[in-house]
Design a protein around this nucleic acid. Structure first.
Length: 490
RNA sequence: GCACCGGUGGCGAAGUGGCUAACGCGCUGGUCUGCAAAACCAGUAUUCGCGGGUUCAAUUCCCGCCCGGUGCUCCA
């Protein structure tokens, strides 16, 4: 099974395979930890998660590096406002970020690299660039990359910057640069700012050098894939390429993947538009983590996704269908044997599922065969034509589906509870429906369900329905089936 | 302004030069049920933004237009 993935660098679908024939070395730009992550951030991380999970599912181990930018202008500004060092400001957001990833079931990359722990590597890279004549120091002690040193600049974003004239004094702030387009490698310390004393002076690294240095540290000078949000393509990734390839004279990443921005209610998400949501915001409105994952994953990564609450409801209900089926399948008492029809249906679904994901991670297309299989299996179960061996075949397909989508097994309680606890501590608003739903324990529900079953036996339908309604108000749905009574939390 | 992406049923969203235009959600009717829920069945786009063109054949290719979005600056 070969994965064909769009490569921004080549502008076409290229096969993604490890150069070393074994494991795929990939680098994905991580967060700048100055605030809580929003759903736009998470769409990117989720789509990268889809990629790495699919690689693993098809037998390719991954060596995945993610950076944490824990020093930058916003961090310095925010920390200064609170009058604390950045080292005391960022940890809360680093922790929150990983909590959020866990809520969304985003797998942890094999390597997490914090910028502040790899300053020496960045300094070394800048020195290497200086030796190559591609870096220079300005009067204030900052270092810049000389764009003229890298003629291929623009090859990723397909920009032709030859028309940018150097002479024009476009940028008053950056008067010391040789050329307006030269970008910062190292920023000289201003009074009171966090800084490191290094051989190239006192200051802090620029953002771009961070990723170049850490990617090469963990993955080598050339590696398989570099991923990130579409906004990073220019200038961030372009700058990474320029620095890295100038320093090593080798290709940096062979393959570049960019995830498109999401829209919220048809507009770019921004705080000023009032359509800005963190993961926690959504959990506290009562949406399930799995639904958020599903909604952010189901539109393929190269397409704009318009995020709406209706979309979350849709995702919730779609997951519900899968979960209801899964529970039914596992609980069903079945005759031994296998049926030709179901075996064929399962195999067909499996093939179509893998084919869809192999085709540039077409998650929307990949869902279809799974739902087809669910319908076929439900029909066979209804007719009593579904046999025990068929269950294994169908469960195996669901397992492959969940190896990437990871929504069938219900793990939604944890994220919601964590969000509620956090909100209580921070004094944030919690949706009343959500609080109402927290009302009953499993044991209490079981007791009520048992009472209802008893009432039904004595044909006391009034009482039975009363209990069902009571539970419904608290988000508990009852299903009577041949294999007993089941209930679930909506 | 320059560049790029998209416009498919009530909504979300696949897809293809020619088979009944996937799948999910929703809605309507039916089967099942004490009633529901779940499940299944049927219906829900004679048509894929508009106008031209190429072709035996276009939703799918080409041109123009309209609409929406994004990038060109920190940003996932």
């Amino acid at each position: 099974m070969t994965l064909r993935l769009f490569n921004t660098l080549s502008g076409q679908l290229d096969e993604l395979a490890p150069a070393d024939g074994h494991s795929l070395r990939m680098y994905a730009c991580g967060p700048t930890v100055y605030d809580y992550g929003h759903i736009g951030n998470f769409r990117t991380f989720l789509q990268v998660d889809v990629l790495r999970r699919f690689l693993k599912l098809t037998g390719t181990p991954v060596r995945h590096v993610m950076n944490i930018t824990d020093v930058d202008d916003k961090i310095i500004r925010n920390a200064a406002e609170r009058g604390i060092p950045i080292g005391e400001y960022t940890p809360q957001f680093v922790d929150a970020f990983f909590d959020d990833l866990e809520s969304l079931r985003v797998e942890r990359p094999e390597f997490i690299a914090r910028a502040t722990e790899h300053i020496d590597k960045m300094v070394a890279l800048i020195q290497k660039l200086e030796a190559a004549g591609a870096a220079y120091k300005t009067e204030d002690g900052s270092w810049y990359f000389r764009l003229a040193a890298f003629p291929e600049y623009g090859k990723l974003s397909k920009k032709d910057l030859s028309g940018i004239e150097d002479g024009a004094r476009v940028d008053v702030d950056e008067y010391e640069k040789d050329s307006a387009r030269d970008f910062a490698l190292w920023k000289a310390a201003k009074p009171g700012e966090t800084a490191w004393d290094t051989p190239i002076g006192r200051g802090r690294p620029g953002w771009h050098i961070e990723c170049s240095a850490m990617a090469m540290e963990f993955l080598g000078e050339s590696f398989d894939l570099h991923a990130g949000g579409e906004d990073l393509m220019f200038p961030h990734h372009e700058n990474e390429i320029a620095q890295s390839e100038t320093a090593t004279r080798k290709p940096f990443a062979r393959h570049w993947m960019h995830v498109r921005f999401l829209l919220v209610d048809g507009k770019k998400m921004s705080k000023s538009e009032g359509n800005f949501y963190t993961l926690r915001d959504l959990l506290l409105k009562g949406y399930k983590a799995s639904a958020i994952r599903m909604a952010l994953i189901s539109v393929p990564y190269r397409h704009q996704l318009n995020f709406t609450f209706d979309g979350l409801v849709e995702a919730t209900n779609a997951i519900d269908r899968l979960r209801t089926f899964h529970v039914r399948l596992v609980a069903a008492s079945l005759p031994a044997g296998t049926s030709e029809a179901m075996q064929a249906a399962a195999e067909k679904a499996r093939v179509a599922y893998f084919a869809a994901l192999s085709n540039d991670l077409n998650t929307a297309d990949a869902r279809a065969p799974i739902f087809d299989l669910v319908r076929a299996a439900n029909t066979a179960l209804d007719k009593g034509e579904f046999l025990a061996g068929d269950r294994d075949a169908v469960l195996s397909v669901l397992k492959d589906f969940d190896a990437v989508f990871d929504v069938i097994e219900d793990r939604d309680a944890g994220p919601t509870e964590r969000a509620v606890a956090w909100a209580a501590q921070e004094g944030r608003e919690i949706a009343p429906e959500l609080l109402a739903r927290q009302g009953l324990t499993d044991t209490e529900i079981d007791a009520l369900v048992a009472e209802r079953t008893q009432a039904k036996k004595t044909r006391n339908f009034a009482r039975a329905d009363q209990i069902r309604n009571e539970l419904a108000e608290k988000g508990i749905v009852i299903e009577d089936s041949k294999d007993g009574v089941r209930w679930k939390r909506k």
